[in-house]
Each structure stands twice: as structure tokens, then as C-alpha cells.
Simulated assay, not measured.
Amino acid sequence: MDRPMPSPRMVLFAVLGTVVYLGPAVLGWGGFGAFFAHPARIALVAVTVVLTVASLFSGGNISPGEREDRGNRWVLAVFTVLGLLGAYVPAWTDRTELWTLDGDTMRWIGVVIFALGGVLRLWPVFVLGRLFSGLVAIQPGHRLVTDGIYGVIRNPSYLGLMIGALGWALAFRSAIGVVLALLNLLPLVARIRAEERLLADQFGAEYEAYRGRTWRLVPGVC
């Protein structure tokens, strides 16, 4: 699948998104000097930057395509609020030692989980390329992808999002951050249901058969 080079607009969007996400964390930890005083937090930023750069070459987009469920856009606002809280609060609780978990071991476990979640989040985007949109939409030439990781679970990128959010919270040893990460499940389930309705309407029996032999999010669970 041909993948266009990232446009200046995409690069700007990615840079601003990264700054908006990392900025509250730096603020929560009391500034650049305090934040970057620990190697685990440096590693967390490095992983974030690498994932952001990789995402520019995935082929994904935020196009409404040929058909979009606009009624689901509220989910994006909820994700934004939870994302900003999830960026700031864990860093703040880490600095103030409020409801923290374990010590440095937990930080590094969190960094690893965050990285694994980020890879799982991006892997399906690379598989789908231009068919992947940040909106609930049918793209031109849309087809069902049912092999590889999609042969097991239907929403691997969303599983990666949850794992990444959990890893971020653990990298700051934050019990409150874990709760905020889990709250993402509420808009996520709404998003998944909207996508599945749209795909079922678009592909009919083909999608129903696919849904009958795969898991929605976690193999063996749901």
C-alpha cells in the first residue's frame, strides 16, 4: 500500500499534539528541570517522540471520507479532556507523593507498558493505511481487513490506547492516573459501538460473519 509522505500540516499537527500532551506532564512535575531529572521520564518522552514520528508515516488520516457518523464526534472531546487530565494529574501526584505505587521499578514497568501500548496503537494504523481515520468514517475504496492481528481482535488500536494510557500512569506511579486511564473505556466503548454499526451497515453479512469469529477488544474476554 502506497503511503504518502507526511504533509507540513500533518507534521505541525503531530508536533502540537505532542507538546500539548507532554506540556501538562512537565508542568505537573514542576518544570523542565524537575521533570527531566529522572531517566525514566526522559525515556517516556523519548518513546513519545519516536511514536509520534512513526505515526507520520503510517498513512492514517482524520478524513470524514465518503460517509461519517458525525454523532460520535463528542467522543473526541471526552478523549481530549481525559488525555489532558491523564497527562497532568499522574505527574503531579508523583511529585507530591499522593497515592503513589511502589518506586523506580514501577516507573520503568510503566515506560515499557507505555511503549508496548504505543506500538499496538500504531501497528493497525500501518496495516490499514489510508483506510484508518481518526473519525468514525467509511473511506473511499473501503474494504474489510480480516487477517493478521485483525483476524483475532477487531479493535487492536483501541486496546493499544488503553495499554498505553495505563503505562503512562504507572510511569508516574500514579494510582489516580490508573483510574483516569480506565475511564477511557467509557468513551471507547461508545466509539467502538458506533464504528461497528457503521461497518455492519456498510458490509452487511460479511461484517457480521467477521464479528462472529473475532473478539471486540481482548481475546478470551470481550
Rank of each mutant, 00 (worst) to 15 (best):
T52G: 09
S55A: 14
L56G: 06
F57Y: 08
S58K: 06
S58P: 10
G59E: 03
G59Q: 03
P64Y: 03
E66G: 02
E68W: 01
E68K: 05
D69I: 10
R73Q: 15
A77W: 15
T80K: 00
T80R: 09
T80Q: 09
V81C: 07
L82V: 04
G83S: 00
G83D: 00
L85C: 10
A87M: 00
Y88V: 08
V89Q: 04
W92C: 00
T93V: 12
D94P: 07
D94V: 03
R95Q: 12
E97F: 06
E97N: 12
L98E: 12
L101H: 01
L101E: 02
D104W: 11
D104Y: 01
M106N: 00
R107A: 11
W108F: 06
W108Y: 11
W108H: 01
I109G: 00
I109D: 02
G110Y: 06
V111W: 05
V112A: 14
I113G: 03
F114Y: 14
A115L: 12
G118W: 02
G118M: 06
G118A: 04
L120F: 11
L120Q: 11
R121G: 10
R121P: 11
L122H: 10
P124Y: 11
P124V: 11
F126T: 06
L128T: 04
L128Y: 06
L128P: 06
F132V: 02
G134S: 07
V136K: 00
V136L: 04
V136S: 02
A137Q: 08
I138K: 03
Q139M: 12
Q139C: 06
H142L: 11
H142N: 09
R143D: 08
L144N: 10
V145A: 08
V145I: 15
G148T: 11
I149Y: 13
R154N: 05
P156K: 07
S157W: 15
Y158Q: 12
Y158K: 01
L159A: 01
L159S: 08
G160N: 10
L161D: 14
M162L: 15
M162C: 07
A165K: 14
L166W: 02
L166E: 07
G167A: 10
A169E: 03
A169Q: 03
L170Q: 06
